[in-house]
Design a binder for these strands. Structure first.
Lengths: 205, 205
DNA sequence: TCATCAATAGATCAATCGTTCTAGAGCGGG
DNA sequence: CCCGCTCTAGAACGATTGATCTATTGATGA
């Protein structure tokens, strides 16, 4: 409620259009850049051009802000990854679909991804547990698919979990160094090279 | 000075043996776990069992503590990487020596590595510049060696810099998930699998 | 023996932190 | 018209922050 009634504010702004959403948008920017502990409520209020108490009108406390970011982004990631491989036939094709899906989805969550694997131990025990659960969930998806590769004889020898972690390393690192502005064929090329790296490494076996 | 004269304290402690060094040791622990902004001077003082002003006796300010950690660890990394490949013949052998050397050296800098690629934008402009310079330095070493692979026809097609970034992703990610306690043949196996991943990916080309 | 000085603790500073309180403005339904 | 609601600002709270000041200890060297 309180959102459905808004017929008044036909604000043509890019995305926010909502006081609460605009605050989340600013918060994720600052949290990703300076970290959770490094960002004060007043920092967010200043950027938003509103008062501190306004933020507390929408969010119970600072961590609720963090949680709102989580809910609109990373929370859905495991489900989206499962969607990406749903119905795909063949272990190699499934794995490729998984990695591609992951790179595509998180493209829009770049700041959030950075936030979440940077601030690990900095939250309340509850927040920490949530964070860890999702990360474990994602890892298990990769382990399952890589297990499929192994059964098909498509996997280099070694531990399955380590292979999954290495894969996630390449993906998450990509989110760190790649620039958000990139789009179109240029981006497709880069994503393709990351995928190729995961499949065959630098090349010299 | 102030250190050379110390013949008195033959403290048999594990590592510290020096008030200043003990503080650096504790600081790197806390910075890696909670981040720079998330760790207060009092946190460090409490763990060390000393007073706040004692810390300020050794360090001008909080960032000087960060800088001391940098100076005894990551600062030397580019030089150590260059050492690791010095005199090695053959582009493939050089690249392998580089990755292995990197994994070996940073094994002892696990916390520091985490600290430095987590706290990016959280420092003064000066600290930020130092951080970025080292990271660029390391990247250039990888680019040069991968360029060597390319000339020898040992590289998969694609951009050299992206290949270097992917490689660093696997390495830095390893530092995140691997446990410090591991040693001996078990660790060698894991390191080997990370190297193999960098060379040939998960296996299914 | 005494002056010096590194090393320590404790009190204290102004600033900032997360958070709460009070209150006004604008709007809709009765 | 006024009641109640959402949205907003500003002042203020106690706690914590990075940093400083003052003072005491104990050892070293003259």
């Amino acid at each position: 409620m309180a959102r459905v009634v808004s017929l008044k504010k036909a604000k043509s702004a890019a995305v926010p259009a909502d006081g609460r959403e605009e605050l989340v948008e600013i918060a994720v920017d600052l949290f990703a850049a300076r970290g959770f502990a490094g960002t004060s409520i007043r920092d967010i209020a200043d950027v938003a051009g509103r008062s501190v108490s306004n933020i507390y009108h929408y969010f119970e406390n600072k961590e609720a802000l963090w949680f709102a970011i989580f809910e609109r982004s990373i929370k859905a990631l495991p489900g989206q990854l499962r969607e990406a491989i749903e119905g795909v036939e063949g272990p190699r094709e499934r794995f490729i679909a998984l990695v591609r899906g992951h790179l595509d989805v998180t493209e829009h969550y770049r700041r959030e991804a950075k936030m979440f694997f940077i601030d690990e131990e900095r939250l309340s025990p509850a927040g920490n547990r949530i964070n860890k659960r999702v990360q474990r969930d994602i890892l298990s998806i990769y382990v399952a698919e890589i297990e499929g590769l192994r059964r098909a004889g498509l996997l280099a020898p070694g531990d399955t979990q380590i292979a999954a972690l290495n894969t996630l390393g390449a993906i998450n690192w990509y989110l760190r160094w790649s620039r958000a502005g990139m789009s179109g064929p240029k981006r497709a090329e880069v994503v393709d090279q990351v995928l190729q790296f995961i499949l065959r490494g630098v090349g010299c076996a």
